[in-house]
Structures are given as structure tokens and as C-alpha cells.
Design a protein around this nucleic acid. Structure first.
Length: 371
DNA sequence: GAACCGTGGAG
DNA sequence: TCTCCAAGGTT
């Protein structure tokens, strides 16, 4: 049953479209590290990394990841600190924790074989409808749709679909379209070709239609409306959060770091002690001192601001005033453990995964000059 | 369904 | 500077 009839699909030259699309892909596809073989583990890792992330960004992370964890078993056995370090700077860190959990599940429940059915693979943590279809088609050749932003943009133009692609329910319309169009003999190339076309030719804004291998099939191009598609409503703007942070040293020159909670923003990553500023009545230095004292029972000496950081997340902004300071009085080990605090040397700090915002603070601290 | 969850690059 | 975005998923 379908609740949306795609007008142009009845008289659409499906076979011609498939052939033109796949022929183009065979000739023009980029050489990418995850295309060297069809190891389901590597395909899976690449698809998770590529979620909301550009190919050029992913390439070095993928190569290092496979060096560190060549097989599914290697990754399953890795500790949490190491997997977060492998993901440091990539963003959306729940991806790697979910992947780790799912890979361990595959080792225990599926004897180390990545599932090859939609039902089984979709139950794995972090594997949604797109990733399920991508792994099934690319690694196993199964004719399952893998509808991402590229596919929705490309098909919205080819088939002149004007549904709002920002709405979750719209994805189902495109999945139905792909089920009609997909090449059952080469689902892997068909799905990859749709995405590659979206990345290289059928781009947002003004697409390169003169270079497009399937423009004769494209309804939007025929009507000259390709630049108006896809229809996508805007997201609302993010809120700002004021923070005060400090890089604190003790008498041995060690640095105080804090492990973030297991859930929420930047979960399980390390950071320098920081607090949210709710009301701006006191100088920020004193806000930090007071909050630190209330939280941990010690009062640091705080120097000058070493850097002001505006860090943009997907749905909020941090404005962080960062100080350098000293903490002469020692904090009891039990208190450190309870609050997930730790003293580390400047050498040891390299082994801990930090968010980019805190890497910026540390860079300002080590460069000494600040600002 | 809307909000949450990162980052860096392009226009 | 600002907006949008890039191979989404979870709650």
C-alpha cells in the first residue's frame, strides 16, 4: 500500500535510467578507502562515520580506525578510551559508542558475521533505515533502499517530488521510489551511484546538469526547476550558553581534567573544569571559584582570561571564557573519583579524548599568549 | 514529531 | 558574519 503516487513513475524509463546511472558510476566513481573491498565491517564503519559528515573529513579517520582496529574482533575488544580517541574530533560521539556496542553484539550473537537481513541488522544500535540499507546493498548486494540526503535531493529532481525532505515521514516516499527503480542485479552500484551523483553533480543549490549522465530522465531539468528542489524547510536557530572554564595546575604541574557524564552532549569525553553562568552578577573569575568550591570543596587561584571561545554545535552555542589557574590545596582521592576528576601530566593528556572546544582551550594554554 | 547530538567547509 | 550543510539515529 502506498499513500503517495509519484506521477512521473508510470511512464519513467526505469531500465534506461539504471543503465545510464550505473555506467556513469563505473567510469567516474571516486577511489575511496572503503571501496577497496566489500568487507561488511569496513562498509559498516564507513557508513557510520559518513553520517552527517563529509567524505574528505572521514577519509583520514577511516584509515586510522582500520589501522587501529583491522577486524571486527579487534574493535570489539578495544576499550572505551581508545574508541573515543579514534573518534576524537569527528563529532556525534554516540555513533562510536553505539557502534562498539553493536559490534560486540555481532561477535557474541552472530559469531562475528555482520547480519545480512533487514530485520537483524536494524536491531543493532546505531543502525537506522539508511545504514541498514547501505550495508545490505553495498556489502551483500541486497536490493534494499539506502535513502540519505543525496538520494532525496537527486530523486526529488529526477521524479519532481515536492514533499518537504526535512520531515521524517518523507523518507518513506523515497524508499518506495528506490524500490521501484533499484537494479536487483547490482543494488550496490545503484545505491552508491545515486549518492555519488548527489555528491558530485546533483549538488544543492545549482546542480551541474550539463555534466549529468541522467539529465534526459530528469523531470525537474525538463521543466527547468532543478534549482528549486528539493523542498526543505529551515531549522530554527540555536540557543547560546555562557560558560566559564579553567585549566588548573597543581604543585607538580599536572592538569586537572573532568570526564563528562555518560549521556547527553559530548558524552564520556574529557574536558577542563567548567561551569555554566546563569546570572552575571559576579566577575566570571569569581563565578568559577565559587562554583568550584561548592562542587569540589577547594578554592583555586585564578589568573587572567587566556582565551574566549565561541563554539558552535548543531543545536547550541557555547561562549566560553577560559582562565588559567593554580590549585595548591589537594583534593581527596575519593572526591576526585566521585566527581570523575583526574590529575594528568601534559604527556598523559594525549591519551584522553577531548571535544574540539576543549582542544582549543588547551591550545591557547600551551601557546601561552592566549587571545 | 520535535529536539537532541559535532564539526569544518562552502558560498 | 551568517546560513546551510554532509552517506542519520535516538529519544
Amino acid at each position: 500500500m502506498k499513500n503517495y503516487e509519484i506521477e512521473s513513475l508510470s511512464k519513467f524509463n526505469t531500465v534506461g535510467f539504471r543503465n545510464d546511472l550505473i555506467s556513469w558510476f563505473e567510469k567516474e566513481q571516486r577511489e575511496l578507502p572503503w571501496r577497496k573491498d566489500q568487507d561488511p565491517y569496513k562498509v559498516w564503519v564507513s557508513e557510520i562515520m559518513l553520517q552527517q559528515t563529509r567524505v574528505e573529513t572521514v577519509i583520514p579517520y577511516f584509515n586510522r580506525f582500520i589501522e587501529w582496529f583491522p577486524t571486527l574482533e579487534d574493535f570489539a575488544e578495544a576499550d572505551e578510551e581508545k574508541i573515543l580517541k579514534a573518534w576524537e574530533g569527528l563529532g556525534y560521539y554516540s555513533r562510536v559508542r553505539n557502534l562498539h556496542s553493536a559490534v560486540k553484539e555481532v561477535c557474541e550473537t552472530y559469531n562475528g558475521m555482520v547480519p545480512d537481513t533487514p530485520e537483524a541488522i536494524s536491531k543493532l544500535k546505531g543502525v537506522g533505515p539508511y545504514t541498514a540499507g547501505a550495508v545490505l546493498s553495498i556489502a551483500y548486494g541486497k536490493p534494499e533502499p539506502a535513502v540519505d540526503g543525496n538520494v532525496m535531493r537527486v530523486l526529488s529532481r529526477i521524479l519532481l517530488i515536492e514533499e518537504d525532505i526535512a520531515k521524517p515521514r518523507t523518507r518513506k516516499i523515497f524508499e518506495e521510489a528506490v524500490r521501484e527503480l533499484i537494479d536487483h542485479g547490482n543494488a550496490s552500484f545503484f545505491n552508491q551511484a545515486l549518492m555519488e551523483l548527489g555528491a558530485l553533480i546533483c549538488t544543492p543549490g545549482v546542480p551541474a546538469c550539463l555534466l549529468c549522465p541522467v539529465r534526459e530522465h530528469c523531470v525537474a531539468f525538463g521543466e527547468g526547476v532543478q534549482a528549486q528542489l528539493p523542498v526543505k524547510t529551515k531549522k530554527k536557530k540555536s540557543r547560546a550558553v555562557q560558560l566559564v572554564a579553567a585549566i588548573l595546575t597543581n604543585n607538580q604541574g599536572d592538569l586537572l581534567i573532568h570526564k563528562r557524564p555518560a549521556n547527553g552532549l559530548l558524552a564520556n569525553l574529557w574536558e577542563f573544569p567548567n561551569f555554566e553562568i546563569h546570572n552575571q552578577l559576579l566577575p566570571k573569575r569569581e563565578v568559577f571559584q565559587q562554583q568550584f568550591l561548592d562542587a569540589y570543596g577547594a578554592k583555586p587561584e585564578i589568573g587572567e582570561v587566556i582565551t574566549k571561545i565561541d563554539h558552535v554545535f548543531s543545536h547550541l552555542v557555547w561562549n566560553v571564557d577560559t582562565f588559567a589557574g593554580k590549585l595548591d590545596e589537594s583534593i581527596d582521592q575519593q572526591v576526585l573519583d566521585k566527581h570523575h576528576l583526574k590529575w594528568v601530566s601534559q604527556q598523559e593528556i594525549q591519551d584522553y579524548a577531548f571535544s574540539v572546544s576543549h582542544q582549543k582551550m588547551f591550545a591557547a594554554y600551551t601557546s601561552g599568549t592566549g587571545i
